[in-house]
């Protein structure tokens, strides 16, 4: 499904992602854990094409993503929910979701998105900027799903969200995976959420994968050691 080979990303001379090799399977949910500054956000941003990669390849279902611009990657099947959600705050909820439809060429929001996030239907004429953090997160996910991605990237989705809603979000993401048969890569700092949502846990440190285990075999103590400063 999604294959990274010898993948490198750098800001000028400083390498952030170093020779990363990663393979994400069909309908797999992978959580990428790591401390601040270890390259989680850089990895996500480079996969959607906001930051160029230095070398190596990324292939999604056999399509090479490296030469593509962000919007072309969306067309190829990548969906992106950025850190801080980045919804279009002056546009209404409905319009926000509609921007996600661009690559599909459709005009109408598929009803199943509203079924999944009923609160967005209720608030469809409100400006995105006036929603609460949790609602904005749902909106950002709905916007990404509108383009019918085959892999969904989420960068720190739990940041600034109430603990009670975090539990629910893990459930929602698994439901999305089951219904839409897509793969999900989620970067996280909250271990409990990662254990709730993922099939497989990765820990990255200094731009390299240092731990790669199925969630059943994940040992909390080991991972916590990687995450603690």
């Amino acid at each position: 499904m999604l294959e990274l080979t010898d993948y490198n990303v750098a800001y000028g001379q400083s390498d952030v992602i170093r020779n990363m090799n990663l393979s994400v399977g069909d309908e797999e949910i992978v959580a990428v854990l790591g401390r601040n500054g270890m390259g989680k956000t850089t990895l996500m941003k480079s996969l959607i094409g906001m930051i160029p990669s230095k070398s190596g390849t990324v292939a999604l279902n056999g399509v090479d993503l490296v030469p593509l611009q962000s919007y072309e990657r969306v067309g190829a099947g990548v969906g992106f929910v950025p850190q801080g959600r980045m919804i279009f705050s002056t546009m209404t909820v409905k319009e926000n979701i509609e921007t996600g439809l661009t690559s599909t060429g459709k005009n109408d929001i598929p009803e199943d998105l509203y079924v999944m996030f009923p609160v967005l239907k209720e608030m469809q004429h409100r400006r995105g900027g006036n929603l609460s953090g949790g609602q904005q997160q749902q909106l950002a996910i709905a916007r990404a799903l509108a383009s019918n991605p085959s892999v969904l990237l989420l960068d720190e989705p739990t940041e600034g969200i109430q603990p009670s809603i975090i539990k629910e979000m893990a459930r929602t993401l698994r439901t999305i995976r089951d219904q839409r048969k897509l793969s999900i890569i989620v970067s996280e700092q909250v271990l409990s959420f990662a254990l709730d949502v993922a099939d497989r846990i990765l820990v990255i440190e200094k731009g390299n994968i240092v731990l790669d285990v199925p969630v059943e075999e994940a040992d909390q103590a080991t991972i916590t050691r990687y995450l603690s400063v």
Binding site: I48, G49, M50, Q69, S70, Y71, V74, G75, F80, P82, M86, F88, S89, T90, M91, E95, E98, T99, G100, T102, S103, T104, N107, R143, A144, S147
Partner: peptide, 24 residues
């Protein structure tokens, strides 16, 4: 119109507009 919505999205956040599939 679609162009209008896409324009407003690009105005607000160019990299993000591209990352939701808009050819900026």
């Amino acid at each position: 119109s679609r162009l209008g919505k896409q324009t407003r999205a690009v105005v607000q956040n160019r990299p993000m507009a591209s990352a939701v599939g808009i050819n900026t």
